[in-house]
Amino acid sequence: MKKFMLIAASAMIILLISLQFFRPEIGHLSVTGDLQAPANVKAILVRACYDCHSNQTNLRWYDQIQPVYWQVASHVRQGRKGLNFSNWDKLSPMDRKGKLWEAVNQIEQGAMPIKSYAFVHSDARVSKQDLAVLKNYLIGTVHETPNDTAKLRAREKQVQAKADQNQQKLPESLNGITYIPDYKNWQVISTSDRFDNGTMRVIYGNDVAVKAIKEHHINPWPNGAIFAKAAWDKLEDEQGNVTTGAFKQVEFMIKDDIKFRQTNGWGFARFKTPKLKPYGKDVMFTAECISCHKPMKDNDFVFTFPIKN
């Protein structure tokens, strides 16, 4: 018996040692254009996020031991894919802004930095004060201009175009979801005033969704529930009245935990502008939707707090 234990233990040790030689490459890629932000803001992000969201990954010795290293390397690879502060120059100014708001929201919802990582790297935790610094910085970047002429013109252009517009066939998203024109007959379940990106939204639910709300069966949402979210520019006048400007897009989330198993049980689709152009370069556009909705995983990936009508 003793001998068996000894053999088992040695086998274990040999396995662990050999594991050390299997090292997925994380690569040390170049910094093409680093994040530009005030020093105090940047310091927090560098400390808490750069190991996985930049090309300046700084692994400690205990990160390099297998099997821990496996997880670390995979986090770094995936983390860089969605958000890389070292290639900040590759993003449009609007996308940079969007990513920063998304980043701060991921921190606020407790989704980032990844818990297991923050547990070991106690210096990477983002304190309440750190979070306040980040939020204040973002609030300071919001500028709402009354009578924004570019936005007024954009709306006017859409009004003009509407007259000679005739949709022939319903558009289809790259993951095979057909646009649902009927959403305009559904119930409104909420609205959202997005001061982070200057848009306003109306969120609709189909009959299945509305029934689920009435019956308090919304976590998880039942199969067949569909949300539609329509977004417009915000147009503000000098008196602070904000009305809808140009139509930006309409998005759908269709619940079907079998058909859409691979995308967390939801079929995602986005159609842009009044021409309803399907969004994305390929099917993988849904990865974007999922990463941002992921902090809502305890609410079946849904942000909206629905209203009963």
């Binding site: 709402e144 305009k184 007959n185 119930q187 409104v188 909420s190 609205t191 005033d193 306003m200 109306v202 509305v210 709300i213 308090h216 919304i218 976590n219 915000k234 503000e236 602070g240 009245n241 904000v242 009305t243 809808t244 609410n299 707090f305 629905p306 209203i307 009963k308 009508n309």
Partner: peptide, 28 residues
Amino acid sequence: LINQKASLPESFRLSELHQKVITSFINN
């Protein structure tokens, strides 16, 4: 998760009117 304070009383029966959104607006 349900937005209780923004919900309409059931007696108002808005959903049964089957009216559609014309527009939405905000007062800043």
